[in-house]
Structure formats: structure tokens, C-alpha cells
Amino acid sequence: MILHTLNALPSSAAFGDCLKLLQPGDAVVLLGDGVYAALEDTSPCDELRATGVELFILQADALLAGIDRPAEGCNSIGMDELVALTERFPRQLAWY
């Protein structure tokens, strides 16, 4: 299974490409401009959740963007947890 780091706006091609390739069992970490996909009641957020992936958001980047309460199902993590995720998943793919 694949760990995707998603650092791209929901309006971007990278976001759409990533969405298309997600499968259950994968995990997605929202970071950088990707954090806007954690805004509740938005279609990018709903589309991400519908893929059945585990969803995470890098807390520092979320706070920077003013997202202090990420959408339901999206777990805030710090750097240590990000590192732990990279150990858990055999392969990773960066979207930016």
C-alpha cells in the first residue's frame, strides 16, 4: 500500500491525479497547500474520504492555514507521526 503526501491545492491537477489513484489501504497526509482539502463540507474533502484511505493532516501546516479543526476523519499529526507513517508504508509518492 502507498503513503501519499499531498502538497497541492484541491483545484490543482496534482490533486485530481492523486485522487484518481487512491485505493483503500493507502494513506494520505495533507501538507502545505494540500491542507485546504481538510475544510469540512467541501467536495474535495468528501471526495478524499470517499476513497476509503486513511487521512492525516500535518498539524503545523493546518494551523498556519487557519484550519484549527480539520474535517471529521482527518487526523492531525506532527513530524514524529509522519516519520512513523513513512516506516509503516513500504512505498511513498509525493504530490505537489
Binding site: I2, K20, L21, R91, Q92, L93
Partner: peptide, 17 residues
Amino acid sequence: NPQEMQQLMVAYDHLLG
């Protein structure tokens, strides 16, 4: 198609985007 791409990706040790 997307499903085939998903299957393809997990057949590799490493991915580079």
C-alpha cells in the same frame, strides 16, 4: 484505467512522482 493504474503502482518497490 484508474483501477489498472492502482494495481500497477503496488507492483513496484519504489515510486517516484
